[in-house]
Design a protein around this nucleic acid. Structure first.
Lengths: 193, 193
DNA sequence: TATAATAATTGACAACTGTCAAAATACAAC
DNA sequence: GTTGTATTTTGACAGTTGTCAATTATTATA
């Protein structure tokens, strides 16, 4: 990203960002990500290529920005002051709920691409990163563990994404109670249940 | 990959594959992956671009092939008939040992790129995939778990890669006993130790 | 509202990408 | 060895990428 979207943005910048965001989102429902070119985005948004590169490094960068824009909705709902296991389950449930409420977004991702697509990897990478930051806050308090806190947080965010992926792609008809059971089972170690 | 390297290869094909493999490996120690172009690889290997595209889809594809070629060494050492927890620790130890024995490879990866680089993601993605297949075999036997076997295997392979990454990038001076402790702690759930 | 400073937009450029169909080479059967 | 077939190699092409320095528009201040 060439500019800092957390800083104050002029009207023009907001307008341009919005146009690129929408163009990418629309393109994603039309063809697979690999086939989308910066030219496509520019034709759709009616901006010349050079303008695109004033804002983004490349199309991957725009995608990342799109996720973070969409993701704001989820992140705002998550309580900052959770406690360990409960907090993790909470984050997981909010993510699962988010995708249930945004079927058309999930459809876009799955449409021309599977769970192995660059598209999902990009989105799940973003979610994992955000989850990692939150979980780290939860773990910090807990100092009677043998494992470094940063590693522990990574472990939990990996787990959240793994179960989320399972629910979205392998078992879409799953109910949220079973999903939570899976999560908690793994949280307590798989072989020793 | 445009050809099937598991089938019989002619002398010419082997020669060409080797040239590209070595060119990529050498390039990786010279500059960061993002900066390496297909042209660079072709200049180094003394083949025209079109020949490159007869074998690989793009430079990412060549990289993937390079990992699988290098990875053969590790995979061959891993026992196919492990049992649950012990098997997972065994895989982890072999991976850690492999990187200790191949410092120069790890140096290449780390040189112009961190743990967040495309380079390491590509390699760890390959290792995770291979670990997943092996772990799945280990888990299949165990039918008293509440969680789907495929999800369980994914969970364990994620864990192996997470601890491996920790050892290689965050705590390179770690001894293998502590590393195993971390792994086993997480294997039994983090909060409940 | 006039002005200076700042930010956004632009077309043109050189380099890189991936794909042909044609040419050259290697291979197997006789 | 010669022949015909299959594979490998090749140069040339059209399209895409990312970067300039120059131009235009927008903003804040007087």
């Amino acid at each position: 990203m060439k500019i800092d979207v957390t800083q104050h943005l002029t009207l023009g910048a907001k307008r341009t960002l919005k146009a690129f965001r929408l163009a990418m989102f629309e393109s994603l429902s039309e063809k697979e990500f690999d086939k989308i070119t910066v030219n496509d985005i520019c034709k759709k948004s009616e901006y010349p290529r050079a303008t695109f590169y004033n804002y983004f490094d490349d199309k991957f960068d725009l995608l990342q920005y799109l996720w973070s824009y969409i993701g704001k909705d989820i992140l705002d709902k998550i309580p900052r002051d959770g406690d360990g296991e409960t907090g993790i389950v909470k984050i997981f449930n909010l993510l699962l709920e988010f995708f249930n409420d945004h079927q058309e977004l999930l459809a876009n991702i799955t449409k021309n691409n599977g769970a192995d697509s660059h598209l999902w990897h990009s989105m799940s990478g973003y979610l994992r990163h955000e989850a990692d930051i939150l979980v780290f806050e939860y773990c910090k308090e807990n100092d009677q563990v043998k494992v470094p806190v940063k590693l522990l947080a990574r472990f939990y965010s990996d787990l959240i994404i793994a179960v989320l992926e399972w629910c979205l792609f392998e078992q879409p008809e799953i109910n949220s109670e079973t999903a939570d059971e899976y999560l908690i089972s793994l949280l307590n170690g798989g072989f020793n249940v």
